[in-house]
Amino acid sequence: MPKMKGTSLRRSRAGAGVVLASVTALFSLGGLHAVPAFAAGTAAQSPDKTRVTAAVLSLDGGSRKPLLNGKDTAYDTASVVKVDVLATLLLQAQDAGRHLTAQERALAEPMIRNSDNAATNTLWREIGGAPALEAANKRLGLTATQGGPGAKWGLTRTTASDQIRLLLSVFDGAATAHPASPLNKDSRTYIQTLMTRVADDQAWGVSAVSGSGYALKNGWLQRTATGLWDVNSVGRVTVDGHRYLVAVLSDGSGSMSEGISVVERAARQAVAATART
């Protein structure tokens, strides 16, 4: 297993209680997760089963095609879908000619900053679930994302390229070479602000590429059938003054900490490769 940076490992351990509480709550609702293996002191075995795909797009370049490392196949989103849920909610509000209500903001903030599952459950129902998410995604330019069944938003399926398309719809104000996003400036700024203010225990994943100046959303879940972990991270990073959109999706890790290491290593390698092009 690749060695984790000390900061990432400390954050992972510090957030164990938060992860356990969050995941246990969703499990009790008939949701997606079992008790986290690393928090419980056990780990599933994942010999040669880990998959990872990273996609990177430079916001300072003219290309609209991300550099891919790995096969651009579908993965479970886990909690990275929460950015998509918020984008859908904001598009619906724009269509209605209104701003988000105080209650909607009170749910959106912990959904992104703390990865709060209960808030996501409420907003998933409010937007109209998978059909509404997929309708919004057509407008946002996503082509390969399928909403999760029923209330299981974490089982939404997506690709790394589609996550770059979603990030581009949020951050494209900084990239004039790209087409305009259906999200207006206020909506984009709102998502960006929440993604740059994630709680300390959430600050791992693609943020490992840059010491500061990042915006991100992470996701993780343990599959009950195999005991293996899906661990994902998406966001914008700044490296040596250059801005990149990064999406790393993985599954098949034996523990959450192993998955974090896989994701962070893949993010570093993909950004370094993009910087050389």
Rank of each mutant, 00 (worst) to 15 (best):
residue 2 P to F: 13
residue 4 M to T: 04
residue 4 M to W: 02
residue 5 K to L: 11
residue 11 R to K: 14
residue 13 R to F: 10
residue 14 A to S: 13
residue 25 A to I: 10
residue 28 S to Y: 08
residue 31 G to E: 07
residue 33 H to W: 14
residue 43 A to P: 00
residue 47 P to H: 12
residue 47 P to E: 08
residue 50 T to P: 03
residue 53 T to A: 11
residue 56 V to Y: 02
residue 64 R to V: 05
residue 67 L to H: 14
residue 68 L to Y: 04
residue 69 N to S: 14
residue 70 G to D: 03
residue 72 D to P: 04
residue 75 Y to A: 03
residue 77 T to D: 06
residue 79 S to I: 10
residue 81 V to E: 13
residue 83 V to G: 10
residue 85 V to E: 01
residue 90 L to W: 01
residue 92 Q to F: 12
residue 93 A to H: 12
residue 97 G to F: 13
residue 101 T to F: 13
residue 103 Q to R: 15
residue 103 Q to E: 15
residue 110 P to Y: 10
residue 111 M to V: 09
residue 111 M to F: 08
residue 112 I to C: 05
residue 112 I to L: 13
residue 113 R to K: 15
residue 115 S to I: 08
residue 123 L to Y: 03
residue 124 W to K: 06
residue 130 A to P: 07
residue 142 L to I: 10
residue 143 T to F: 01
residue 147 G to A: 09
residue 168 L to Y: 04
residue 171 F to S: 05
residue 182 P to S: 13
residue 184 N to L: 08
residue 185 K to C: 00
residue 191 I to V: 13
residue 196 T to R: 11
residue 200 D to I: 03
residue 201 D to S: 12
residue 203 A to I: 09
residue 206 V to G: 04
residue 207 S to I: 03
residue 213 G to S: 06
residue 218 N to C: 04
residue 219 G to H: 00
residue 220 W to K: 06
residue 224 T to E: 15
residue 228 L to Q: 12
residue 230 D to S: 15
residue 243 R to A: 15
residue 246 V to M: 05
residue 247 A to K: 03
residue 248 V to E: 03
residue 251 D to V: 03
residue 254 G to N: 11
residue 256 M to E: 09
residue 260 I to A: 08
residue 261 S to P: 00
residue 263 V to G: 01
residue 266 A to Y: 01
residue 270 A to T: 08
